[in-house]
């Protein structure tokens, strides 16, 4: 179980094949604790910056400060926001609160999915987004250059390289895929 959790955290199991793992990760369970520990270990090894302290509180505060565009009185709220922010806070109805909460939940879940799918750095996320939004011009080489981080050498490419461009020692000392 722990191995599978670790594999999922390392993106070695497809999300669709891991529904039972998701189910096992009930809040406050041992699995959920391991899950967050594995991500923390991964982040530390990759040198990814952790979220700022009080991330959730800060995010909620920022969301509170955002104008909640709801018709029909959205225009009215925007008008008053600039001069009476405190009054705006008082006027928030339970409906707008629940929208803010679900938005925050989407943010957190989205962040987790991006962490597992795309992995290392924020800039990589930007690259991935640029790819999905079909804007090749946005992915300049320089942005990719900034995003590069330490990675293991993929053995499938190393084997291909050694098969077609061998060094004097690679005939006798094999790459990882041939490990004994």
């Amino acid at each position: 179980m722990t191995e599978q959790l670790s594999a999922l955290a390392d993106d070695e199991i497809a999300l669709k094949d891991a529904e039972y793992l998701m189910a096992a990760m009930q809040p406050n369970s041992h699995s959920a604790e391991l899950w967050s520990q594995y991500h923390l270990i991964g982040d530390v090894m990759r040198g990814t910056a952790a979220l700022s302290p009080n991330f959730k509180q800060n995010l909620m505060q920022k969301i509170d400060l955002e104008p909640t565009v709801l018709s029909p009185n959205a225009g009215w709220l925007n008008q008053n926001k600039a001069d009476k922010p405190s009054e705006e806070m008082h006027r928030k109805t339970p409906v707008t609160w629940s929208i803010a909460a679900s938005f925050a939940a989407v943010m957190v879940v989205g962040w987790m999915v991006l962490q597992t799918q795309v992995g290392d750095t924020l800039t990589q996320v930007v690259v991935a987004e640029a790819v999905t939004t079909q804007q090749p011009a946005a992915i300049t080489v320089s942005s990719a250059e900034q995003a590069v981080s330490e990675q293991a050498i993929p053995t499938e490419y190393l084997s291909a390289h050694q098969a077609s461009a061998p060094t004097a020692s690679s005939y006798y000392i094999q790459s990882a895929s041939y490990s004994e």
Binding site: Q117, A128, A144, V148, E150, Q151, I153, L158
Partner: peptide, 25 residues
Amino acid sequence: KPRVGHSTVGNTSFYSNVAGYLQIT
């Protein structure tokens, strides 16, 4: 996911990035 990264293991150096719609290794 696009692979972007670099490393040197033993005598072998590795670098991968993205150029437009292409994965470069």
